[in-house]
Write a protein that binds this DNA or RNA. Sequence first.
RNA 1: GGCGACGUAGCUCAGUUGGUGAGAGCGCUCGACUCAUAAUCGAGAGGCCGACAGUUCGAAUCUGUCCGUCGCUACCA
Length: 548
Amino acid sequence: MSTPVLVAVAWPYASGSRHLGHLAGAYLPADIFARHQRTIGNEVLMVSGSDVHGTPITVRADEEGVTPQDIVDRYHNEFVQQWDEIGLQWDNYTTTGTPHHARVTQDMFLRQLENGHIDKRTSDQFYDPEADRFLPDRYIEGTCPHCSYEEARGDQCDNCGRTLDATDLGSPRSKISGATPVLRATEHFYYRYSDFADEVGAWLRDKEGWRPHVINFVTRWVEEEGLLDRAITRDLDWGVELPVDNLGPGKRIYVWYDAVIGYISASQEWASKIGDDDRWRHWWQNDESRHVYFIGKDNIPFHCLFWPSQLLGYGDLHLPDDVPANQYVTFKGGKASASRGVGLTIREGLDLFQPDGLRYALAANFPEQADTEISVEEIARRINEELVATWGNLVNRVLSMVHKNHGAQPASDGRQAEDEAVLAAVDASLATANEQIGRVELRSALRTAMDGAQAINAYLNATEPWKLAKSDPDRSAVVLATALDGINGVRIAFSPFLPFSSAVLDEALGVVDGWQRVPVAPGTVIDKPVPLFIKVDVDELVGDDADG
RNA sequence: GGCGACGUAGCUCAGUUGGUGAGAGCGCUCGACUCAUAAUCGAGAGGCCGACAGUUCGAAUCUGUCCGUCGCUACCA
């Protein structure tokens, strides 16, 4: 039976370049999962887009003397280009800056307001009189009351690590203008997340098969602290406009309320693009569908607590079924961060490695259970010692022999026990990888695929068809035909991970259709092969030291 | 400060609810092979499972303390 599967992917923030940690944390696992789901015949809708609102983007625009739209356009275009280069197969990759997204966000806001889950409150906020804007705590600097560090931020002191309240800072100043911030009363809409603490808690208790670090974190959160109401508007002129005018001018819906709504607006946009406006309901208003959210661990509260609350406040929308959040990829022990210059940007990664090589190395190191350490050298090692040596070389040696000795796939009549055994091993690895990807254990699945390749390598070394070609040509033909049939199975397990080299094999052996090994028809012409992957020149990389 | 996670072979990591001799890949050593991108296959060496104390018939796996690393702390998203 075909299941509608929503592959919902974290929305990259268009405030700067994304790095390999983001790629390994959310985008790549989503794409691998989605490709597998398509192959096994499910109806996949994979959506995301650039998150274009929020304070950091406006601040950056001010710093550069350009408009927020300029910043957004720059990074959105960069993202779109990179997704194409790395082979992400979106059904819809859009942005939160479209009129359509604004309408959907406003519709949700109005319905939730009508349902009594949004109300208005007044609070005091810091205001920068010089820059003429309200300041998030993070944009206020001052002296830490605990350690006297003079560069402490309003939310936290980087020196002693304590959490602060901006009102505690000594000689506070705006990070933007340096002016002394003043408190000013301001009125905002609040989403009553507290209305849903019990319901979300109960919903979470039913979950099975979630990653321990995800479910433990959010159940503890909701049970020990509940959910606090949060302001969902800001004193900004950058963001989705409010659909009601009783708050006065200069107020917009804030980014982390509207960004998650993108999952729905992007689904609807996709539906209208394919000319079937109601088609999104097949995923969103369907109990049979399955929603899987691919995010980094910093996004866990938003997707497991706040977003479900927003969905419940609207009503009749499908809640997340699994949120297999990844932990962090670290570089030299630290969390990757584009703004702090730690780790490689996606651009740098693509400039250094072939896309399939980069996909392989990252997938082999996905931080599924814990943070994982990665480096340029580690990526190169994975590519050269594993991908090229085991899989690339296997394909090359078999295709070369078949081409040279027969020019086409030989007949395989009269298979012996060892021949059947290697094919059985390949089929078993396909079945195992299928289960592993279904559970979003992608590292293990990749290893399983590699085991299939190694089984064929071992089979070749045991049967030595290059010797048989002289002593027993008929037997040699059967062995080569068997090896090629095996490759035709193993490549299916690799296909979600390695779309580019898979496309090359599709040309030689036919397009993969379904998660099962299909024999290569005797007589299929095999041309002289070109290596699937190029070895990385490590010496060239070392001089680069791009991950400092 | 609070909360959480992690600390397992040279490197990157697995180790279900505690139980016969602690694993994988890569690297390393030796051997085989030479069809293949000096790739492959086989065998082997290598670890007092961060430290200390405790619970238990028995702990890498549970408890406590300590050391080290990292993350989060709800107006960064």
